[in-house]
């Protein structure tokens, strides 16, 4: 008996470690410990063993069974591991590049616009939009630009034929012409006519000038403009906001200054210069970055606000110019060519 058990165990020890598949294992397992398995048969022979030998024999069988089970468990674990390994395939090479295109990128003008909007949002400004095709009223008249002002000339502004009809725009008079807005200031008027002060808005958007395209000029470009209307707004408040914006955008070392200027819709009016020597490729002491001023009382009267009660400031600047300064870009046309080698530099 003992010999038979040892032989059986030796055979299992030889056979089980080389089994290849789960099916082979199941078959082998059945051969040993299945209902008609060899080991099962031996166990059933216990009844024929003389009574005095039974404890020793029982012990022997139990030990053998234990060893057999260890062999079976090991075989099953090994086959399970092999199966997982087969599912996985060969190991990856982590240094191979992903074959997918990407990552995607935001256009630098979007990045600058959104950063400005984020900065202004902290100062309480909400973002508004307005149409790019405008009427003369919103683009000029309401902004205190006289009918024969040179800026309105067909030489500088894109107009549409008299018969043109734009469904989402209403003319004040039949003679009024449609045009492509020359600045985002038209959105100021739309906002003031729609709501009541206090108003605090930022309006980014595309504007158009009838101009030659070169390294610094583009037939369409983008502006970002702010309007704040409240009681007791001062020149100093305007300066404070500009200081805050440019320090946030370009760093604490950025300094701004006002130069007197003239715009029809603000009084007093200023041009804003900034000094940002810490930026790369900035080789001028002062760089002109935008225009601003205190909203002209005539503009308030035009939208039905009492200039004795309300005061405010407005400022605007070119997004391209800002982006060129921030990133050290020296030609405005790169923004519109969309060479991926350009676009990928700002993500």
């Amino acid at each position: 008996m003992q010999e038979t058990l040892n032989t059986l165990l030796a055979r299992a020890t030889a056979e089980l470690p080389v089994l290849k598949s789960r099916a082979d294992f199941e078959a082998a397992k059945a051969r040993y410990v299945g209902p008609n398995g060899e080991f099962t048969v031996l166990m059933k022979q216990m009844g024929t063993v003389p009574k005095e030998q039974r404890p020793a024999m029982g012990k022997l069988i139990n030990e053998t069974k234990g060893r057999l089970q260890v062999q079976l468990d090991a075989a099953l674990a090994r086959i399970g591991d092999a199966e997982i390994a087969a599912q996985l395939g060969p190991a990856i090479d982590p240094t191979l590049p992903p074959p997918d295109t990407g990552p995607g990128t935001y256009h630098p003008l979007t990045l600058v616009r959104e950063e400005m909007c984020r900065i202004l949002r902290k100062a309480g400004f909400t973002v508004v939009e307005g149409p790019e095709v405008e009427t003369e009223y919103y683009c000029f008249d309401a902004l205190n630009t006289p009918a024969d002002h040179p800026a309105r000339d067909a030489q500088d502004t894109f107009y549409f034929p008299e018969k043109a009809r734009f469904a989402n725009l209403t003319k004040k008079t039949p003679e009024e012409k449609y045009l492509l807005r020359t600045h985002t200031s038209s959105v100021q008027i739309r906002t003031m006519l729609k709501g009541n002060p206090p108003i605090r808005i930022v309006s980014p958007g595309r504007v158009y000038r009838r101009d030659t395209s070169d390294a610094t000029h583009s037939a369409n470009f983008h502006q970002i403009e702010c309007l704040y209307v409240d009681k007791n707004v001062t020149v100093r408040d305007l300066k404070a906001l500009l200081d805050y914006i440019f320090a946030s955008l370009l760093g604490q070392d950025t300094v701004t200054r006002f130069r007197p200027h003239y715009f029809g819709y603000t009084e007093p009016s200023f041009e804003v210069d900034l000094s940002a020597q810490h930026l790369p490729k900035v080789n001028k002491d002062w760089i002109e970055i935008g225009g601003c001023g205190m909203v002209d009382p005539a503009v308030f009267e035009g939208v039905g606000y009492d200039p004795e009660v309300w005061s405010g400031y407005a400022f605007g600047m070119g997004l391209e110019r800002l982006a060129m300064l921030m990133y050290g870009i020296d030609d405005i046309r790169y923004f519109y060519q969309n060479d991926l080698r350009f676009l990928k530099q700002f993500a």
Binding site: A123, V128, P198, A240, D243
Partner: peptide, 23 residues
């Protein structure tokens, strides 16, 4: 005009409205 003294941006009162749906 370059002598306008610096100031901190005043904490604004909240104004109604979210950014434009287009934005």
């Amino acid at each position: 005009t370059d002598r306008v003294p610096p100031a901190t941006c005043a904490g604004p009162a909240l104004i109604d409205g979210d950014d434009d749906p287009i934005v």
